[in-house]
């Protein structure tokens, strides 16, 4: 009995979690492409509520998925409108420092804080888009 159930568990079911992740990624890319940002929002919601990922893993993995997606958006924006690189430099350097700091602190942040800050950000976005 054990030997017959093991291989089934070892390989993910067809159209199972991998399909969910693919759909979540597709939606994130679509939102990012249409609005120039915000793709992490549907991604986080789908990864936590639908794919049932652990919350912290979901937040961190979202950042990792959105990085290449955002690079695509930045490239498209650059080709279309041109990006001013020089004024961006101090922000980018600050971001580098903040990114390290945030990554270091992430482990100790209670999930409820992450959720609350994220929720505020969503509600602000809702206000911007609905009014």
């Amino acid at each position: 009995m054990k030997s017959s159930s093991e291989p089934r568990n070892a390989s993910p079911p067809l159209g199972g979690d991998a399909a969910k992740y693919r759909v979540a990624g597709a939606l994130a890319g679509t939102v990012n492409g249409l609005f120039g940002g915000g793709g992490g929002i549907p991604l986080l919601v789908l990864l936590t509520k639908w794919a049932k990922l652990d919350e912290k893993t979901a937040f961190a993995t979202c950042v990792a998925v959105i990085l290449p997606v955002c690079a695509v958006s930045a490239a498209v924006y650059f080709l279309r409108a041109g990006l001013s690189l020089v004024p961006a430099i101090p922000y980018l350097l600050g971001g580098l420092l903040g990114g390290f700091l945030g990554g270091k602190l992430f482990r100790g942040v209670p999930n409820v804080w992450l959720r609350r800050v994220f929720a505020l950000f969503l509600l602000y976005g809702a206000w911007r888009y609905l009014t």
């Binding site: 120039g36 940002g37 961190a60 950042v63 990792a64 959105i66 990085l67 955002c70 690079a71 958006s73 930045a74 924006y77 990006l83 690189l85 961006a88 922000y91 980018l92 350097l93 971001g95 580098l96 420092l97 903040g98 990114g99 390290f100 945030g102 990554g103 992430f106």
Partner: peptide, 12 residues
């Protein structure tokens, strides 16, 4: 848009 690239990379 540019800002997210080094910031996210550092956190990752």
């Amino acid at each position: 848009l540019l800002y997210f690239l080094p910031t996210a990379a550092a956190s990752l």
